[in-house]
Amino acid sequence: MVPSIEQIKNNLKKSNFLLDCRLPMGYSQGLPILSIKNGCLCITFPYLKYQTTGEVDKTLVYPIRYAVTLELPTEKIIGYEDYEYRDAFKNIDFDKPVGLFRHKAIQQYDENQYNEIRKELMGEYDKVIQSILENADYTVSDEKRMRKLLQLLVEPSLLPMYQVIDIDFYKKYLSKG
C-alpha cells in the first residue's frame, strides 16, 4: 500500500528523527521534490521559514535551509542536509528573506482557495508516486496539470534553490522553457 503524500508528510512531521534534527522553530515543509536514486523513488522535503509581518502579501519568505529525504514506499529516511554547509549555497544568507508571500500569481486566492489548489497539487504528487510504484495510469494531461500547479505555487524566489537541489525535478516541472 503506497501512502499518500499527506500521510508521508504527517508521519515525517511527527517522527522522532525530525525532532532530533533540532530544526529551529518556524521551519515548515515546502513543496517536495520527487527523484529517482539508484532506481528507487525518493521524496525530499525542503524546510523553510515564513515570517508573517501582519500585512497582507508581505509575509517574508526565507531560503530553503534544511531538507529531509525519504525512500518510498518504505518512508525510510535516507538523508538530512543543512544547506548552510553545501558549497553551492555558500553565498546565501539564510537569515535574510528572499521574497514575499503571496507572490503576484497567487494574490487572487484567499486561504481556502489556496489550500484547495495545494490539495489538488498533493493529489498530483500521489498520481506520480502511484504510477511509479504501482504502475497506475498516468497521462500527459496529469503531468501538465502538475507542472502548472507547481509553477503557480512554488515561490518564484525559491526557484533557483530548487534548481540546485534537483535539476531534473526543476527541468521537468518548474522550468518555464
Binding site: G26, Y27, S28, Y50, E55, F101, D110, E111, Y114, R118
Partner: peptide, 9 residues
C-alpha cells in the same frame, strides 16, 4: 483569509 502562510509548523 488573506493573511496566511503555507507553513504549518
Amino acid at each position: 483569509d488573506d493573511l496566511f502562510t503555507p507553513g504549518d509548523g
